[in-house]
Design a protein around this nucleic acid. Structure first.
Lengths: 137, 137
DNA sequence: TTTTTATCCTATCAAACTTGTAGGGTAATA
DNA sequence: TATTACCCTACAAGTTTGATAGGATAAAAA
């Protein structure tokens, strides 16, 4: 299940991407428009800024803004930053690999093979979907 | 992330499916072979039995056994019983649908559309993979 | 009939994670 | 210098997860 953190993050990003004017947008405005708890959203946007997806400006007239063109923000990046691994098992994750305690031989594990398939088909979608695709749909 | 419950359940099912002799197998044996806590596995197998995927026999010589041919046990069934929804969002789930609190209009939600794609591609795999496919791989 | 075996079932529990809140610190602008 | 709005840490309630305890029940064997 996708966490609310990720869902809210995606909604905030699409909100920013949809704006024609490219100035900074305050947390309060996004929070109001998208029905997201302001304080929770604050921490999410902070995470996205630290990941290099958003930029921010302090003080009056400040806020958050997209640092790149929406077409250059693939879903893989956003999901990995907010949700973590895309794979359904640590032993199948490309970016967050971890060995399973219970598996003596990963290559002999049938669950492993199944989850590699799922990972690949999900990756296929996330790699070919950018923030720009999200708003144009 | 796939829960250990689901992972253990799948490993137990493949263990049963791989056996040539079709008699009941005791929890203790599966637990030993697959490195799964016996008591935890007990509750998992019980769930699978109640879902009509496994049968059981009490007393000496008892245990669990597959109730159908492994080829007739699709991953969709197993995953839904053990893990719950296959979709990453409740508002996108076919079997466990729920409306999102924060979305006024589901059809206008870009996250919704993205997750429908992911759901469909994952479903595609689970629908076309049976327990028999799992052991033959 | 009694004992043994192995599933059945409920309750419980610690640890981890999620969602959200509180409160002050910091930098930019007016 | 005051105000604004992001920055950052800590924390807390609620839920989920993974696992354990302990006995009830049914079947087979002694």
């Amino acid at each position: 299940m996708l966490s609310k953190k990720t869902k809210y993050g995606l909604k905030a990003l699409t909100f920013l991407a949809r704006r024609d004017v490219k100035g900074p947008v305050q947390i309060a405005e996004i929070s109001r428009s998208e029905n997201i708890s302001q304080k929770f959203l604050e921490s999410i946007l902070l995470t996205l800024r630290k990941a290099g997806i958003l930029g921010s400006k302090k003080g009056k007239g400040g806020g958050y803004y997209l640092i790149k063109d929406a077409a250059d923000v693939p879903m893989t990046d956003v999901i990995r930053v907010l949700e973590g691994p895309i794979a359904m098992l640590p032993c199948v994750s490309l970016n967050f690999y971890e060995k399973c305690d219970d598996c003596p031989d990963e290559n002999a594990c049938s669950v492993n093979k199944l989850m590699i398939q799922v990972r690949d088909s999900t990756l296929q979608i996330f790699r070919h979907t950018s923030l720009a695709d999200l708003i144009s749909e």
